[in-house]
Amino acid sequence: MATNDRVISGFQVNRPLLTGGVALTAIGTLLSATGTVVVCAALIAAGRSWVRGLDTPPTALAQRALREAKVASNAGWEAWRTEHSSPN
C-alpha cells in the first residue's frame, strides 16, 4: 500500500492552471449556449416569415394530403375487394 500512496501523493495539480481552464471552459460553454440561442431565434424567425409568405397554409396542405391518402386507400381497397371477391 505504501507504493500506491507514493503514486497518489506524487500527483500534484497546478491549481492556478486548473482554475484558469475551468474558467475558460465555463466561458466557452456560455458563449456556445448563447450562440445556439441566437441561431435558433434566427431560424425560427425565418421559418415563420416563410410560412406567412406561402399561398396555402401548411394545415390546408396537410388536410388535402390526408384526404387524398384516404381516397387512394379506399380506391385500393375497393379494387382489391373487386379482384378477390368470392362468388358467394
Rank of each mutant, 00 (worst) to 15 (best):
R6S: 13
E83Q: 12
A62T: 03
P58Q: 00
A79P: 03
A72P: 06
T36Q: 15
A42C: 04
G21C: 00
G21T: 00
R64Q: 13
E78R: 11
N4R: 09
A42H: 07
S73K: 11
G20F: 03
D5S: 13
A69R: 13
T36I: 14
F11G: 00
L66S: 15
T59P: 01
N14R: 06
S85T: 02
V71T: 12
G10I: 00
S73T: 11
L43S: 07
A79S: 12
A79L: 08
A41M: 05
W80L: 03
P16V: 00
G47C: 07
S49P: 01
W50G: 02
D55P: 02
P58E: 00
T59L: 13
G21W: 00
C40K: 12
I27N: 02
A62F: 09
T82N: 07
V38M: 11
G20Y: 05
Q12P: 00
S73E: 15
A23L: 09
G47I: 01
C40E: 06
A46T: 03
R81D: 05
L54Q: 15
A69M: 08
L17Y: 05
V37E: 14
L66F: 14
A60N: 03
P57F: 01
E83V: 01
L24Y: 01
L66T: 13
L17I: 03
W77A: 11
I27T: 07
S49R: 11
G21D: 02
R15C: 02
A33W: 11
S32G: 15
A72D: 12
I44K: 12
I8G: 09
V37A: 15
R6M: 09
A46Q: 11
A33Y: 12
S73W: 13
M1Y: 15
W77Y: 09
G47W: 08
G53I: 01
R67K: 13
A65P: 08
V71W: 09
I8M: 14
R67I: 10
A79Y: 07
T82L: 04
A75M: 06
S73D: 14
G21Q: 04
T3D: 15
R6G: 11
G20W: 00
V13L: 11
R81Y: 05
N88Q: 10
G47E: 05
T3H: 15
R48N: 14
P58C: 00
T19N: 13
R52P: 03
N14M: 03
G10C: 06
V38I: 14
S86L: 10
H84S: 02
D5P: 05
D55N: 03
L30K: 12
L24C: 02
V37I: 14
Q63M: 06
E83S: 07
A42K: 11
P87N: 14
L43M: 07
P87S: 13
P57L: 00
G28Q: 10
G10K: 03
R6W: 11
L24N: 04
S32K: 09
A42E: 06
K70F: 12
